[in-house]
Structures are given as C-alpha cells and as structure tokens.
Design a protein around this nucleic acid. Sequence first.
DNA 1: AACTTGACGGTCA
DNA 2: ATGACCGCCAAGT
Length: 109
Amino acid sequence: MSDTGFFDKVYQVTRLIPQGRVTSYGALARYVGSPQSSRMVGYAMNGSSTQIEFVPAHRVVNRNGELTGKHFFDGSNTMQELLECEGAIIEDNTILNFKDIFWNPNTEL
DNA sequence: AACTTGACGGTCA
DNA sequence: ATGACCGCCAAGT
C-alpha cells in the first residue's frame, strides 16, 4: 500500500475505525509510528475531505473525548450528530461514554 | 529557504 | 489538580 507519507497512513487507519467506535489522535499517531505527532493527525484530518475515499474523521477526538475538531465540519454540531447517531453520548462537546466506545488500533487491529 | 502555525499528548513545576 | 513547555511532521506565508 502506498505509504506516501504520514497523512495517508493516518487516513487509512482512520477508515478502519468501526462504526459506533471512536479513537484519539494520539492512538492513531502511535499506530502510524509517530507517538508524539498527535497534532499532525488532526492536521491530516483537516485534509480528509480532499480524499477520494471517505474518512470518518468525526470518530477521532482528543484523549479527553472532546470534540475539538467539530468546528472543521459543515455545521456547528455536525460532528456531534454523526457520533450520537452512532451511539455516542455527548454533552458539552465531550463524549461521556468515551471509555466504552474507545477503539485502540494498537490493541484491536 | 526560513519561520510560524496547527483537530494533541506527555511531562515537569 | 492546574498551568506551562517541548516534541513532532506538513503546509502556508
């Protein structure tokens, strides 16, 4: 597969996130081999919309379960609605059942 | 070509 | 427990 770079790896792993589950930037960063580049993961998500294949960027939140990237979606609460639609309990931009639906690529992949 | 910024995370004071 | 600092890679200016 094309490891054309950091971003592509991130996109590919992100697509593997099961529906109804979420993961963190740090977990993805660690999986692609750059544990300290969690910011880059978020930055990559920024360009996820330019990808041919759909990337469920809404399933990626920070380690605190907060929807820090909701601002980068169409509406103001698009990300939240998508997640709630998949079974997440969200309040004040935070996934309350984060611990329950967390998906760790390093452990479950 | 150099500097700054960015959807984060871990550590140290 | 709260706040500041550093690291990391890519893209924009």
